[in-house]
Design a protein around this nucleic acid. Structure first.
Length: 178
DNA sequence: GATAAGATCATCT
DNA sequence: GATGATCTTATCA
């Protein structure tokens, strides 16, 4: 068990990966400590065609990972906090943002937000570019067979293209942000 | 000129 | 009071 999702899982459009990512388990290992959280809210970013995506700005170094392999972790710093994303599609700088997690292992909490999520899991620039498709990485995704209802809604917290239905979250889950 | 790091202002709790 | 896919300034190439 606890086998990381294959790279092929992420080699699809963000809007296809995002909803499938819900209910999956995010594993964060810090030394011998392991945090496990269920993904309950995500947000898809398409890339160059998405005005709200960082890649749309035409960056090359800061968003380097976005242009790289799918399944890689993209750590983005917002103000004094960090945000965790996972890269999708090789050709496009698209990715999926983890907005909220439901604590499975009870050694952490307050994960109902992008910045809070990273703070709780102690995610820093050190994890930038980490391969999340390997179960020996400090950060990876594990499959789950749980049943739940997915809700699609408009994105939040951005100024451009905020009305695009690229936000997905588990219905009736107390850990979903705002 | 380009990349990296730190901060401010609006919205939500 | 806290959080948040942005913006400005500083340092390196």
């Amino acid at each position: 068990m606890n086998e990381a999702l294959p790279r092929s899982f992420f080699s699809r459009p963000s809007q296809a990966v995002a909803p499938d990512l819900l209910g999956k388990l995010l594993v964060r290992k810090i030394g011998k400590i392991k945090f496990v959280g269920k993904i309950v809210e995500v947000e898809a970013y398409l890339g160059e065609e998405d005005p709200a995506a960082h890649a749309a700005k035409g960056r090359t170094g800061r968003t380097e990972v976005l242009y790289g392999e799918p399944g890689r972790a993209y750590i983005f710093q917002i103000h004094t906090h960090n945000c965790l994303n996972i890269v999708t599609e090789t050709d496009k700088p698209s990715c999926v943002l983890f907005r909220a997690l439901e604590p499975v292992s009870k050694n952490f909490d307050n994960t109902n937000g992008p910045g809070k999520l990273c703070r709780a899991l102690h995610i820093t620039k050190e994890l930038y570019g980490v391969d999340m498709t390997r179960s020996d990485s400090p950060l990876y995704i594990v499959d789950s067979n749980e049943q739940f209802e997915v809700v699609t809604s408009a994105r939040i917290g951005i100024s451009k293209a905020a009305d695009w239905p690229l936000r997905f979250h588990v219905k009736d889950n107390p850990y979903v942000s705002r």
